[in-house]
Amino acid sequence: MTTEVFTTRIVEELKNIIGVHKPEFCYQCAKCTSGCTANKVFSEYRPHEFVALANMGYVEEILKSGVIWACTECWKCGQYCPQEVAPVEVIIALKNLSIIKGYAPPKALVEMTKNVIEKGLIQDINQVMTKDFEFIDRDSLGLPPLEEPPQMDKHRNILSKFFGVVMK
């Protein structure tokens, strides 16, 4: 009984994040998996299975495996799903939920989040090497500087609240 209550709750939590798409409409045709970009390189990455597992309440099991982060969000599965389940949106919601439950996302994403809070962009201005072994950046190219837009302090505060869990 306790397990039942627990699994229902986590599925509801997941559905709240998913929004309009309904995983319960999935009838397991596996069209999503047959065209999946991530499945080409990770055979264990099968969107139709994640949808089935989530429907049955095995959400924590998917989160633990961490393989959801292989999704490239190419939206092929969402496009070709005959039931408009959009497995990609289920996966994105699973990723969101994994953050809420305290699982760590790939390191590079934590770095990007940190940069977005601090600078507003996912990365710093890079010096890039040309084929002639010359280093260039915005300055040397004479491109306009990336001035801070107005109200950045307030923006930062809001972002810090949103992303607090990731930064811990």
Binding site: W69, A93, M152, F162, V166
Partner: peptide, 30 residues
């Protein structure tokens, strides 16, 4: 025209969907 706005949120949709929407809406609002 120059438009110095910050991240649209796209790379962080997988971290927090609401934050992603807020970031996009902010760019649009500006």
């Amino acid at each position: 025209e120059e438009f110095n706005e910050r991240c649209c949120g796209f790379p962080l949709k997988s971290i927090n969907k609401k934050a992603w929407l807020y970031m996009g809406a902010r760019v649009l609002a500006r």
